[in-house]
Design a protein around this nucleic acid. Structure first.
Lengths: 223, 223
DNA sequence: AAGTGGTCTAGACCACCTT
DNA sequence: AGGTGGTCTAGACCACTTA
């Protein structure tokens, strides 16, 4: 059964999509596992149609592969997949950072600066949740300032699986120091309204995140 | 009614999605126009469910905006939209070109070289369709060589509207000469296995395509 | 308070894969 | 051929907007 109705007004296929994504990330449905509509309708207590729609949308996010008349398969998160997603995200975030450097208002800049400080405070206190929140706020603000709705949609749509993976692995403290330095560099470039500098800082940031995660995977085996 | 069943085996929501996309591009449904499920079911002779799915998927491609209980609206293609889509595509294609430079086999390279020549031959003979085909083959080959499925999916998914717009405007011959020079530059960088050079060539190529289309729009008004 | 418009369920149907 | 598994239709239902 789908858990608390969350809100009576949210459609079943949306609730199922969210739940299914969370369950895939949590390992309820193993990576590479085969899922049929019948299993979904039984397990979550909805009928075939919303189940199919949820699968179609998750396919759009790259979480599952649907093969006609063969059921869906949870995409496995191997090194190649992680590299590909990070390369895609890196390309988009680099472009957005450059554009943000051109368009940011002083208010936007102050917001980014505040998020950078919130991140560092949370990191110093070891508050993992607060670190994740501040990090998200920081990148949301930069990406939002670029005023490119479609790009942000793609970025957010393609981030779920890898974000969940990253969060599940935790952060090493050396990595946190690295990230803080990268945030500072990015902030400086934005303050200087320097698109090329912002692009380079963003590219370095995402590439190091990619390599850090890939190193984790290589060390501890794939999920 | 949906036209020829195309193939009995392709599901209705897929056929409807393709048809609806083509019809939007052809102007059957005007940009900014309001569409309801009832209109779709009547006009295309399918029931509500496949119509809804087609709309959801086109929303995923950015062609329509769905607002719950208010119907869907065909997204209008203004200058800002064109710029945003081109910036997104440019970011992705730039990344893919760099990656392709690292990974291309000699066979891939020969394919790109052949496509470049096919493009130039078609351009010399004024065969617009052949130009479009060669151009697509060329970029498909480069993008494919990067071996990043998710990125290619996003690229193709987000290109339809703007591609159609560009095709509907035709090509000036000066523009064709520019494009040929850019293709040559890109090919050289790929041959030299030079990722940075390929990235720069790809970025220049998509930026000039963007600015060319924006100039068209500014001159002749929005579609 | 009516109306519009989206969503769900159930059952029939049919395409594709397997024997 | 049989079985599995996805897709369609119809009608009921219900949420959100408009008068």
């Amino acid at each position: 059964m789908i858990d608390a109705p969350s809100s009576l007004s949210t459609p079943a296929y949306v609730r199922l999509r969210e739940q299914l994504r969370a369950d895939i990330v949590a390992g309820v449905w193993r990576l590479g596992q085969h899922i049929t509509l019948a299993e979904l309708t039984q397990h979550y207590g909805v009928s075939a149609n919303p189940a199919r729609e949820a699968l179609l949308q998750l396919q759009g996010e790259g979480l599952v592969d649907m093969r006609i008349h063969r059921g869906a398969v949870v995409r496995s998160v191997d090194a190649r997949f992680v590299k590909n997603i990070y390369d895609l995200r890196g390309a988009i975030e680099t472009m957005l950072a450059a554009e943000a450097a051109r368009r940011m208002t002083d208010g936007d800049l102050a917001g980014v600066a505040a998020a950078v400080e919130a991140f560092e405070r949370a990191a110093a206190e070891g508050e993992v949740d607060a670190v994740v929140r501040a990090n998200r706020a920081l990148h949301r603000r930069i990406n939002g300032a670029a005023d490119n709705g479609p790009a942000v949609e793609v970025l957010e749509g393609r981030s779920t699986l890898v974000d969940a993976l990253r969060r599940s692995l935790g952060y090493r403290s050396e990595r946190l120091a690295e990230v803080m330095a990268q945030h500072r560099a990015l902030l400086s470039a934005l303050k200087a309204r320097d698109p090329d500098g912002a692009a380079m800082a963003a590219a370095a940031h995402t590439m190091s995140a990619r390599d850090d995660l890939l190193a984790h995977l290589a060390r501890h085996g794939a999920a």
